[in-house]
Amino acid sequence: MLKIDSHTHILPEKLPDWARKFGYGDFIHLDHHRSGAARMMRGSQFFREINENAWNPEVRIQEYHRYRTQVQVACTIPVMFSYWAKPLDCLDISQYLNDHIASLIYRYPKNYLGLATIPMQDTDLAIQELERCREIGLQGIQIGSNINDLNLHEERFFPIFEACASLEMAVLIHPWNMMGEKSMQRYWLPWLVGMPAETARAVASLIFGGIFERLPALRVNFAHAGGSFLPTIGRLQHGFECRPDLVAIDNPVAPKNYLGRFWVDSVTHDPLLLEYVLKLQGSMRVTLGSDYPFPLGDLEIGSFIDTMNLDTKQKEDIFHNAALAWLNLQKERFE
């Protein structure tokens, strides 16, 4: 059965010294301190150690073969978004990363699809890069759950979403710049608690801000099964009903009406939670995802889904049909 992993991250093996080039900032660079591994450095501070599967496309294909998964939707690591940088500098970084992913698609057309990163802090430049990435073969964009602390419903971002809809470019929203990160460093809480909350923040912002209502053709996928949005949909719905004066101020449509109007990936780490997500979303709105190659992801690429009591159609939807619909692609591309 064709399997498409809708949520994976990749970097070029070598990154420019952007801090030296631009003359400021703690931009990420790589310290290849031993064979097959590198330290991601944020300025002089250690950020994360990565292995060869974070940049070597053939190693990745071999590892995916173990889990009978043929296709990876590749996008950059969110720390590379660089929304804090000067817009033209962020554009420079985005173009470098996007050209790398485009080259993967060109070299391995049966194994890789790609999502771009764009300078969301500048609407015109973001749309410019979005249009370029469509021309070079990428299928959509990955953006953060907020942009320099601004929620995604802000009017300055609407032209970008509008361009995505008109250009038929998919959107993956990934948590980043987590709320309260500086005050909860202990126990890895920004990743364990902050990320699910960030994704819920993004979903709620787009719903309550009326973005889905204004752009019904916009195809959005939310990482990590939508974070804490779906488990707290009852609370959101109740808030909408009991305090419309606070909640329904920009969109009169209830949040439950949007279930099944967007996609989420399958990264739940929990079959019971995935069953719940499927009941709310339907199998055509749940894409196989892994967050590969990071340890907090599902590095067995959805193996637990095969153990669940799902019929063949549901599995086919999760493994490829939902992703094909989100990306506006035909299965024949991979045959």
Rank of each mutant, 00 (worst) to 15 (best):
P175N: 06
T199Y: 02
Q330W: 04
V277H: 01
R243V: 04
D250I: 03
G194F: 10
T8V: 06
I160W: 05
W188Y: 14
P159G: 12
P190C: 15
E162S: 15
W84V: 03
D265E: 11
R107W: 11
K182Y: 03
Q139D: 14
F319I: 01
R333P: 02
I101R: 01
N177S: 08
D306N: 14
R156H: 07
K331I: 10
L327Q: 09
R66N: 14
I136R: 15
S205I: 03
A102H: 08
H269I: 02
F81W: 04
G194I: 08
P159V: 11
F334T: 01
Y187H: 08
L2M: 00
I147T: 12
Q139T: 05
R39W: 07
S94V: 03
P16K: 01
L152R: 12
W55H: 07
Q70H: 11
A223D: 00
L215E: 09
N221F: 07
P87H: 15
W263Y: 09
K313C: 15
T123F: 09
P216S: 10
I136Y: 06
E129R: 02
G282P: 10
D92Q: 05
Q72L: 13
G227Q: 01
M120N: 03
Q70L: 12
Q62W: 11
Q142G: 06
A325Q: 10
S205E: 06
H32V: 13
A74K: 00
A54D: 09
P196H: 09
K3M: 12
T312Q: 15
N111F: 14
S166P: 06
G43I: 10
R134L: 01
F22L: 06
R68F: 08
K3T: 02
A19C: 04
S228M: 14
F157M: 07
G43P: 02
P216I: 10
F262P: 00
N98L: 12
M120S: 04
W188I: 02
L236K: 05
S266I: 00
P244F: 14
E129N: 04
A248M: 10
R34Y: 08
Y64M: 13
S35T: 05
H153M: 11
L296T: 10
I4R: 02
R42T: 00
T307E: 11
I93Q: 00
G114M: 09
H238L: 12
D245Y: 00
E162Q: 15
I4T: 10
Y112A: 06
G114D: 08
C133A: 13
I301N: 00
K315V: 13
Q185G: 15
E13Q: 14
E168G: 08
F46I: 13
I211F: 01
D298Q: 00
